[in-house]
Design a protein around this nucleic acid. Structure first.
Lengths: 187, 187
DNA sequence: TTCAATTTTCAGTAATTCGTGAAATTACAA
DNA sequence: TTGTAATTTCACGAATTACTGAAAATTGAA
């Protein structure tokens, strides 16, 4: 597997760059990209070889990717090395990532914001700060629980929702009308 | 403004930590947090003073925040210094951030993925890689245009949509049924 | 057990990113 | 203009983060 084919090569290197803009570093990004596009599971040596990273670097990178649930460990019969692969369904990947990000970054922020909100402000400046913090908390809390809710839907339902784009508004309005009609009929 | 009040203090320092998990660094995060909770616009000296950063550091941070459209420049009458404030509406803030992130990170990735997709695969490995890249492209493209669509809705409509959570499914199903009824009536 | 293959850890070093003070530039009042 | 306050730029040292090779630990077969 020395010398990656051109499309793979380009993807891997770009993904490394993007990785560093997200929390993960270039190396980890490249390792993931390689596993993602690979047709079959890879072991640590395959990766170290293909990307020309040290074996230890790959080991650490794989650990990191496992902690994000982005790669799955797989054992091949008659080979005791550990092989890794990415889930086939891209939606599943997206969801793992979002969940993990929520757990690690969003939740701690929310608790901190909550803690600030229940404190008694010492002066007028802090009272204003608290109002602003409250606003931020509401926004983050609403979007994150919403995201969780949506993630629970089937990929097809999500796709359907997304394809509607901004025309969801029409649907919402329609629903409201229906509710009103029902309420009227009841009384 | 030396010695920040406790709630502000805590928020600012936590936000700095979070900032470094996102693309922005600790300093920039703290500067933003301070501006966000402040009741009135701040100038660079206020900030340098409150956070004990060097004046130049603040200047660079403010430039960065402006480029993300997270702070707005404001001139106060009879004072030629530049004052900065964060938009009042947290939804607006969220949208600016998302748009800017899309423009800087998502769009370049999409073009790169597109470029890979139209290339002719050199071998069977690259053909498989291309299929995977295609899947990733579809997912990112769909979510990002969808996000744009939703962002265009009014904050109230968005809030309404979010409050529905996973029960949107029921609405979608209802809509489908309505469509079917209409179609039947037509024919 | 023992042994060899594989994986992980870790100390040291390389690379990158951050923050500062000093100098340069800009903007405005006199 | 000229002088001064405000802002930006930039080179450099400090701090942080990433990567490596060697050594230790783990795993499973014999």
């Amino acid at each position: 597997m020395t010398q990656l084919p051109p499309i793979t090569q380009k993807f891997v290197s770009h993904f490394g760059e993007m990785g560093s803009r997200w929390g993960i570093n270039r190396t980890v990004g490249q390792i993931y990209a390689l596993i993602f596009v690979s047709a079959k599971p890879l072991n640590a040596d395959d990766i170290a070889d293909a990307l020309e990273f040290s074996r230890s670097n790959v080991s650490i990178g794989l650990k990191e990717l496992q902690s994000w649930r982005l790669v799955k460990l797989k054992h091949l019969a008659g080979d005791r090395r550990e092989y890794f692969e990415a889930p086939q369904d891209v939606w599943e990947i997206f969801k793992s990532l979002a969940e993990e990000k929520r757990r690690r970054e969003v939740e701690p922020t929310l608790s901190m914001l909550r803690a600030s909100i229940i404190e008694t402000p010492a002066n007028v400046a802090d009272a204003h700060a608290q109002k602003r913090i409250q606003q931020m908390h509401e926004l983050i809390d609403l979007s994150s629980t919403w995201f969780d809710d949506v993630a629970r839907l089937s990929p097809e339902t999500i796709a359907r929702l997304m394809r509607m784009g901004s025309s969801v508004k029409t649907v919402l309005d329609m629903t409201d009308k229906l509710k009103i009609v029902r309420r009227k009929n009841k009384t």
